[in-house]
Design a binder for these strands. Structure first.
Length: 199
DNA sequence: GCGACAG
DNA sequence: ATCTTGTCGC
């Protein structure tokens, strides 16, 4: 299974992406993974619209795919799918740590997770995949498949793109209306849970 | 060889 | 991501 073959698979996933309008979610979730050597731990939380943790889950195991820029979904995607199966609640918005359509083949981690689960997903990343002047000169910079957003006081932007069932504009709205913090709280909670699991 | 490169 | 010291800001 070489990279060009995996790239073809990504193109297939990209074709399965569907846009959609933003709907105010009653359940918002976030997932993230941490590493410690060969160990990987992934966690996720489902929050009520009031911000209360309704469900939390975590899994741990050994990595089976290396980190390769542009193929991140093959490293974390399978773990996130296994993790999400542990939730009985079905979130109407899922924040993923990584990109969605902001990807060379429009198939970032959020697209993989969104297409496979059928959940509306939004990819959040702190770095662009392709190099470009990412200074916060403008508040909002439209990109091919997503946006670079700079809020007051930020030195670096946050990159927002849909993974499934949301148009780029809807993904931006989902972020703006549900994340007063730069990194959505569900992702931050998932991050700390995943880290704890490795200690 | 050096820097870049979602996490 | 992780390894790490100090440092700036809310």
């Amino acid at each position: 299974m070489n990279l060009s073959r995996l790239a073809e698979i990504q193109i297939k996933y990209a074709s399965l992406y569907r846009p959609g309008q933003y709907r105010r979610p009653k359940l918002i979730a976030g997932v993230d993974c941490s590493y410690r050597g060969e160990l990987i731990a992934c966690a996720g939380v489902v929050l009520s619209k009031e911000g209360k943790v309704l469900q939390a889950a975590q899994i741990k195991g050994r990595v089976f795919f290396p980190y390769i820029s542009g193929f991140f979904a093959f490293r974390e995607g399978p773990w996130l799918l296994a993790l999400l199966r542990r939730f009985s609640l079905r979130p109407e918005l899922l924040f993923v740590d990584g990109n969605g359509l902001l990807h060379p083949r429009k198939a970032g981690l959020a697209v993989f997770v969104g297409v496979r689960t059928g959940l509306p997903t939004v990819g959040i990343s702190k770095k662009p995949m392709e190099d470009f002047p990412w200074k916060c000169g403008k508040r909002l910079l439209p990109l091919d498949g997503g946006f670079a957003l700079c809020r007051k006081g930020w030195k670096r932007p946050v990159f927002i793109s849909p993974g499934n069932l949301l148009s780029p504009e809807a993904a931006l709205r989902a972020y703006e209306e549900n994340s007063p913090a730069k990194i959505p709280s569900p992702i931050k909670m998932a991050h700390s849970l995943a880290r704890r699991l490795l200690y």
